[in-house]
């Protein structure tokens, strides 16, 4: 089992645990990439949740696709989505129809987990009620504080905003509402003086 160990960070940065079978009337799983392994590990602990589970899975941006393993779990509802954006209306509908007692689990990259938790919170669940387990890539989802555009799967720091083209450094400051880290222009005071990018988030 690959558990991610995070450095201690500032208090806005979320922390993650290990998915454990919750008590409830229905169980909704959303995972991307290697997050599928966390879901499989949970089901390996017992079959109890199986009859009332719904899994939405998005293959990782790094190519990791564990659809087959998840499908083999044999839950009543399994949906493979090419992207989180494509899955969003399904997720919103499932949450809107749900009742209290629903357990929500998110596994995979930080961006995916944060977007699932934000959707659950929007539907009325407390943010803390969503179980999260990090697996796979440490690539970040970053909002440019200047143009407001979000760049997915950022591995470099600094990086170039995919919307406005400014060079941004990536802060640890994290917005649960936006499901994103904050990117701030690195050469605002000295235009053109941009340090070399390093791969900080593999």
């Amino acid at each position: 089992m690959i558990k991610t160990v995070f450095e201690p960070a500032i208090p806005s940065r979320p922390t993650y645990g290990v998915l454990t079978p919750g008590v409830g009337s229905a169980h909704l799983f959303v995972a991307d990439g290697e997050g599928a392994d966390a879901v499989c590990d949970l089901f390996a602990q017992g079959e109890g949740l199986k009859a009332s589970s719904h899994i939405i899975y998005i293959p990782g941006a790094n190519g990791c696709d564990r659809s087959a393993a998840l499908q083999a779990l044999g839950v009543p509802q399994f949906h493979r989505s090419p992207s989180f954006a494509a899955a969003q209306s399904r997720l919103a509908k499932v949450l809107a129809d749900a009742h209290m007692g629903l357990q929500v689990y998110a596994a995979g990259t930080e961006g995916l987990m944060a977007q699932v938790a934000a959707a659950a919170q929007h539907a009325g669940l407390p943010y803390e009620a969503v179980q999260m387990e990090h697996r796979g890539s440490l690539a970040r989802r970053v909002q440019c504080v200047h143009c407001k555009g979000v760049t997915e799967n950022v591995t470099l720091d600094p990086f170039v905003c995919s919307h406005c083209g400014l060079s941004l450094f990536v802060r640890d400051h994290f917005s649960r509402r936006l499901a994103a880290f904050q990117g701030v222009n690195i050469d605002a005071e000295d235009p053109g003086l941009v340090p070399a990018s390093v791969e900080r988030f593999k």
Binding site: P11, S12, R171, H173, S175
Partner: peptide, 10 residues
């Protein structure tokens, strides 16, 4: 949307 300690995090 942040809590007290979250928005003071930096």
């Amino acid at each position: 949307g942040m809590s007290f300690k979250q928005w003071h995090a930096p």
